[in-house]
């Protein structure tokens, strides 16, 4: 991962995993740095944050990168673990989940939706590498139409969460998420940091979707090239700020939904009810 700023490393990261085990040219490093930069700009200490990850490139490569407490859940289940943890932790502790697209939008989508439903104070960072890359490159639920992967050798044609005008953000907004943003770091990195900060400051369910290039599998299979600049260009051409979408835009970036601190937070609701029932016997 690309860490030029050594003070970020010293303050927040475990040198054992930095530089990371991610492939050279992987966009995950840029995304990771955005998140850590947001911690720094918010003045958070390692003790303030619990770092959760899961399975796949995003989970495995970012597990134990953060200096504080960290867990990795089984595939897709970090959202259920985080919800239980939210009940047990003091409200001032932040839970930040660093996960992938297969984890969040595939196997874990139900747990994710239920975390949004209850507005649990969790910040989910989805490092979307457009499919299952750690298993060699199969399509996922955000793989753009027509893209060739090892399991879509004729090009992606099965409808998914980002096809036919569908966007996974609509689902999450409908489910009750209170902060939603999307950023492609190579196009709008500075705004990505701002969104991650807003996501963390929202006392409720936040998700920042950050699609990023996979050089080794995705680019090689679809573009026939491992030269990072090729996939970077392919990404940028398909990215546009929300409201300025072009016909070929796949990722409309910016803040999708900001209802920060408008809904009661999950653990507050639960403990509030418990406290009232214990005192008065009723709600």
């Amino acid at each position: 991962m690309e860490y030029y700023s050594s003070n970020l490393i010293e303050e927040y990261l475990r040198t054992r995993k930095i530089p990371s085990t991610a492939c050279s040219g992987c966009g995950l490093g840029m995304n990771h740095k955005v998140v850590i930069q947001a911690f720094k700009e918010l003045g958070l200490k390692t003790a303030d944050i619990i770092w959760g990850t899961s399975i796949g490139c995003a989970g495995r490569q970012t597990f134990a990168t953060f200096k504080g407490d960290g867990f990795a859940g089984t595939h897709g289940r970090a959202y259920a673990i985080a919800r239980g943890l939210r009940i047990a932790l003091p409200p001032e502790k932040k839970i930040v989940l660093s996960v992938g697209d297969g984890d969040a939008f595939g196997i874990g989508l139900m747990h994710l939706i239920h975390s949004a439903r209850v507005n649990a104070d969790i910040t989910v960072i989805v490092h979307d590498n457009l499919g299952y890359q750690s298993t060699g490159g199969q399509f996922g639920f955000t793989t753009p139409m027509g893209v060739k992967t090892d399991s879509s050798p004729y090009g992606m044609f099965e409808p998914n969460l980002m096809s036919e005008g569908m966007d996974v953000m609509h689902i999450l907004k409908g489910a009750g998420a209170t902060f939603l943003a999307r950023h492609v770091v190579l196009a709008d990195g500075a705004m990505a940091v701002e969104s991650v900060k807003k996501a963390i400051l929202n006392r409720g369910f936040s998700l920042v979707h950050m699609p990023h290039p996979c050089v080794t599998n995705f680019a090689m299979k679809h573009l026939g090239s491992r030269v990072p600049v090729e996939i970077f260009r392919w990404f940028k051409e398909r990215t546009a700020p929300l409201g300025q979408e072009k016909p070929n835009t796949i990722w409309a970036t910016g803040i999708w939904h900001d209802a920060s601190n408008t809904r009661p937070e999950f653990s507050e609701v639960m403990w509030g009810a418990t406290e009232k029932i214990r005192r008065t016997g009723a709600l």
């Binding site: 289940r77 259920a80 673990i81 239980g84 943890l85 939210r86 009940i87």
Partner: peptide
């Protein structure tokens, strides 16, 4: 998994 979270 919720129990795991609470136990954690």
């Amino acid at each position: 998994h919720l129990c795991i979270g609470a136990a954690l």
